[in-house]
Amino acid sequence: MQSTTYHKASSAADAAAKLAGAEDGTLLAGGQTLIPTMKQRLAAPTDLVDISGIEEMRTIDARPPTVTIGAAVTHAEVAASAEIRAVCPSICDLASHIGDPAVRHRGTIGGSVANNDPAADYPAAMLALNATIKTNKREIAADEFFQGMFTTALDEGEIITSISFDVPEKGAYAKFPNPASRYAMCGVFVAQGGGGVRVAVTGAGDDGVYRNADMETALASNFSADALDGVTVSADGMLSDLHGDAAYRANLVKVMAKRAVAAAG
């Protein structure tokens, strides 16, 4: 790892000021992606601004109709939150399958969403739940936030402070994990709520998380796994690598979508 200067931020405003004062600084949340990336020297920020301890970003409010999760809340905390589980168990189940127990004790929802890894789980949930990503500057709808692999609407120096979504009537996530890394080779989050049915796919597309409009249309008139039988998922635009080719992933999208709908009930 290259040399860097570590700063601990006490608030989002303090973090923004520290970041603005740095030559080439970056935010450090749980660090479960950033630290390995720095160790490989794929990232070499001059300054790290640690936002993991900011109290205002560590709260959970799950009083219906809206769930709000602070950006620095860890995967383990979401997985174990009785408050969230009572209204939206699917997000707890999703969090409980990210990485491994030690990673879940440090990795945060804000970090995962900001990184927008094409195989990460949270982006699918955020997109399907029509979440709002709140930053120190503005509120961004998930549809505008996720802009392709590792790309988001965040400006330089902009900090995610929390994530909100309305409690869905139905929602579930089905994931086919890579047996070695446990990242999603395909993960589908299906949600039915006030805004209709939304289907978001992670791990499979070659440009990150995306919505499948054909599935949303089919499920809007008939919310059942059978309704997806007639939907064709093209291999065009699917990831193809040693873990699975594009046709295999296209098939997985349909299989995981059907499982998610069945689980949502």
């Binding site: 570590y6 790290l48 030690a102 990673v103």
Partner: peptide
């Protein structure tokens, strides 16, 4: 793996300063 404030964490994926 060590315990930090009672929770298992990977000490190779965390800064001492943190």
């Amino acid at each position: 793996v060590v315990h930090v404030n009672g929770k298992a964490m990977k000490s190779c994926t965390m800064l001492a300063a943190a």
